[in-house]
Amino acid sequence: MAEKLRASERQLNLLGALLKARDGLLWQNIANVEGYNDKLPERSRQKRFERDLHDLRAQGLVVSRDLEDGARARYTLDRAACLMPALNLRPEQRLLMFQVGSAYLRDGEEGPLSSLLSSALLKLQAGAGREGLPAVVPPSLVRRSLRRRPAEAGVLQEIGAALVTRRHIKFRYEAPDGKTSTRTVAPWGMVSRRGGWYLVARDLDRGAPRTYRLSRIRAPLALAWPDRDAPEYDIPDGFDPEVVFSSEAFGAGENSFRNVQIRFDPQVAFIVRNEFEGIYRLDAHSDGGATLHLPQAYAGELLRYLCEFGGHWRILRPAELRQHVMAHLKGAISGKSGGVA
């Protein structure tokens, strides 16, 4: 029956044996561990052990192999490098850690971080011992999510998982002109702003970082080299995706409008304040209204936000943006809308 053990059970047996044996294990010892003690030839069982050892090392476990008498290999788990030290968390830290876990893991919504985060938090709580959990496990108060648009959910899941495990991916990408091409990239980060997620990645064919809008990524999206099982690349230390792609609320770039000012009337000014106070300059007016100052904005992204407020806003400057928006809106009710029959 032993050879039919699932790999994870067999590896757990091996891990348990290595953890128990402080002086390490010889093959003769390992051959008694369930999963390696079946009737298949010894060489087959040794190969099985070597594959499992490779998997343990891929998990970050440090297992040394030393030759005794020039012949017998002894396998020793480096406990100092493999076990978490006890973490003495203060009660408020424990509670916060628990809140982080429940914010992302509860209620079954899968996200790109879920399974790895769950495992990490379990280890942390275990590392903090019996005091690792709050005295009373509270219900979930806040649900956090990385999801931005329904259309992106599947792609976000796969790219996020590749980013966390440092795996190359390939996908078909549709450029704004409608042409599609296959890209093979190393994900370096994700940037979200109004309108969804953007992937910042090193394009292997172009040898440089590029930005990809998730909603333009077409199936199939897959690992570039699915047979590999280890991290494939490093990201430069401290790399910030925002250097490549701005998370400015309404975009930033060559064709954006600069030094934008919008006045909001008192009925809706507080909504703008809730969203942007302390982030962008906001001048309060005596009537309760406010003027929002934006360093840059694309007209389309800005208009989508402003139209949520009906007629409660007015673009003060720049004049070109004001004219652009007015012409755009007049077109909406002109009866001969551009290209729409």
Binding site: L61, A81, L116, S119, K123, T165, R166
Partner: peptide, 11 residues
């Protein structure tokens, strides 16, 4: 005692 984080768990 829990195991050290895997790189993926840390990230």
């Amino acid at each position: 005692r829990p195991l050290n984080f895997t790189p993926g768990e840390a990230l």
